[in-house]
């Protein structure tokens, strides 16, 4: 048995917001695809004063592929809002590559790897972990270069639902103003088409 090249250094231990994200991360790890979890937040809507009204932080960034991946295990009829955000992101950041991984894609992936029995347990609200202490709308706001605090490893076998048990990932201690400033920095750095200058 052998592996490709030298092993990468240990990656940060991320606090995944959803069990499906943890499973997806394990698949990426297995195939030695480097990733970062929610590394960037992209402003997608501003008011007339240039204040960010809405932002979007894709779940994964695969640096070797220069690809963002947004994972959703919501039913297809419920993903309209997410579709709109991705569409808006593509309009504003045309050089950015993003793939939206729908529930059906996730289901197919689980089927391919013989994990179809887990689909219902990793999907939708059942797969959600403990509530965030100070949740953003849709849980999107994380500033550029900042990561959620590491949590203990997710254990899919430790409760009957199979949902990852996690408590503690939060944006505690970050003021609204600090978040706004972080979002503005991201906008300046990454949004050539945005009205923020």
């Amino acid at each position: 048995m052998s592996e490709v090249g030298a092993q990468r250094g240990a990656r940060p231990e991320y606090a995944f917001a959803h069990a499906s994200e943890a499973e997806f991360a394990r698949i990426l790890d297995f195939y030695q695809v480097a990733f970062e979890y929610e590394p960037q937040v992209f402003p997608i809507l501003w008011d007339l004063d240039g204040n960010v009204l809405e932002s979007f932080a894709p779940d994964f960034f695969l640096p070797d592929l220069e690809l963002f991946v947004e994972l959703t295990t919501l039913q297809q009829r419920l993903v309209r809002k997410k579709n709109r955000k991705v569409r808006r992101l593509r309009e504003l950041y045309p050089g950015l590559k993003i793939k939206l991984f729908y529930a059906r894609d996730f289901r197919a992936l689980m089927l391919k790897y013989g994990r179809s029995a887990l689909v219902s347990e990793l999907s939708g609200t059942l797969g959600q972990v403990g509530p965030r202490q100070n949740p953003e709308p849709e849980g999107d706001a994380i500033s550029v270069g900042e990561r959620k605090p590491a949590a203990r490893p997710l254990d899919l076998s430790s409760n009957p639902s199979g949902a990852a048990i996690y408590q503690g990932a939060s944006h505690e201690g970050r003021s609204r103003g600090a978040r706004r400033r972080a979002v503005r920095r991201a906008a300046a750095a990454h949004a050539p088409n945005s009205p923020v200058t």
């Binding site: 048995m1 052998s2 092993q7 499973e23 394990r26 698949i27 790897y113 994990r115």
Partner: peptide
């Protein structure tokens, strides 16, 4: 191939 069992979850793809 990825199996996702407890023992494989920390593993890597192998030849």
């Amino acid at each position: 191939s990825y199996g996702g069992t407890a023992t494989e979850s920390s593993g890597l793809v192998r030849i």
